[in-house]
Design a protein around this nucleic acid. Structure first.
Lengths: 201, 201
DNA sequence: GCATATTTTGGCAGAACCTGCCATTTGTGG
DNA sequence: CCACAAATGGCAGGTTCTGCCAAAATATGC
């Protein structure tokens, strides 16, 4: 039922764009009444955004499965890579690319998407703090300074993720998304001794 | 005229919240017709968000005034600090804190705000690429790899900024915003030799 | 199989946001 | 004072979303 509405919405949405697709049209396409659409989804946005609602949990799972002594940044990079591996290098007609393009094109949808990423950051924070206290032999008090530092790192990683998505859309998906994401994450990766000078100067 | 509408909106908005403030009420408070409100502002969101529309340009100016050989991350941190210096350490009743709290509380407004930050990133990118080509003695071809790296760094910095804003709101503004922001930016700052171990492990 | 209870669905009215169109008012130059 | 231009207001309508209640489908008990 929900799936029926969602797929109907996606069809119309990819065909005529987000704003040009009314809820009434979605309802008709799905064979239900407009009122019932709002029984399944709280808003029109959610019909399309909801498929990104699960990535917070998936990301948290991926993070928990990383070694506890791994640098946070590398864990995030690995978790991102694991989640986006399926995207691969699609043709321009691949729904993933069309979907992302549509999202960044529609202000309403893009704002909603950015918020969804904010929510996913909470899940990532939970997973990483869990991991941190588990890794610490002596369970020490949780400093709020550490907290904001961890939040900042996660936010930075998500910034890279969104940047990579936008950049990938601009390339029409000519290169695999993982490559774009890897470039973005590498640019902000904490410098190790050895690589002295990078784009940051 | 515009200012009259904007201040009327802010008054009602801080008094009864964003969602509970209708455009009709704003119009009445400002002494104009509802139709005229939409002549000044394209949407209800813009009445309140527009004050953040200028920060992209201000940030770009601040970035251009930084030394050309400064690491990008430090330039961003300095530019952020310059723009947010005015905030200081307000009491809980300070409008800045109330405004930020209201923004992060209202999903609609927060989504809009995040988009505004995305726009500001474009301005920052322009300013920093300008600076980079000016610093380079031999004007070399602009690599798209460098581009996404720079975009990633900027996005990471803005991620820290938003994180700091949210964290600052949670502390009720008991510490100056600059401190919170500094902590967030420092957490992601590229490691130098010397500080080996940080929160990233 | 049938009547009843429960859940799902549909229709209707209405609030709020936003837009296009045109009349009215306001201000300005001759 | 009059003609012209610009700003403003009013009106109708479309779209999203909500509350309320009736109708229909489904499940349950006998």
């Amino acid at each position: 039922m929900r799936a029926e509405v969602a797929s109907a919405a996606e069809r119309l949405f990819l065909e005529r764009g987000y704003d040009a697709t009314t809820v009434d049209a979605i309802a008709e396409e799905a064979g239900v009444s407009p009122r019932s659409v709002y029984r399944y989804f709280p808003t029109k946005d959610d019909i399309l955004i909801e498929r990104f609602a699960s990535i917070g949990g998936e990301l948290a799972d991926a993070l928990r499965s990383r070694p506890a002594n791994e640098p946070v940044w590398d864990s995030l990079a690995a978790a991102f890579a694991a989640l986006t591996a399926r995207v691969g290098t699609p043709r321009s007609s691949e729904p993933a690319l069309l979907m992302h393009r549509a999202i960044v094109s529609s202000p309403t949808l893009f704002g909603r998407y950015l918020q969804q990423m904010q929510l996913a950051q909470s899940d990532a924070l939970d997973a990483l703090t869990d991991r941190a206290v588990r890794a610490a032999r002596t369970p020490q008090t949780h400093s709020s300074n550490d907290d904001i530092a961890l939040r900042a790192i996660i936010a930075a990683a998500f910034g890279c993720l969104v940047t990579a998505q936008c950049a990938w859309v601009r390339t029409d998906g000519t290169e695999p998304f993982t490559t774009t994401l890897g470039n973005a994450m590498a640019a902000m990766r904490p410098t190790r001794e050895g690589d002295r000078l990078d784009v940051r100067h």
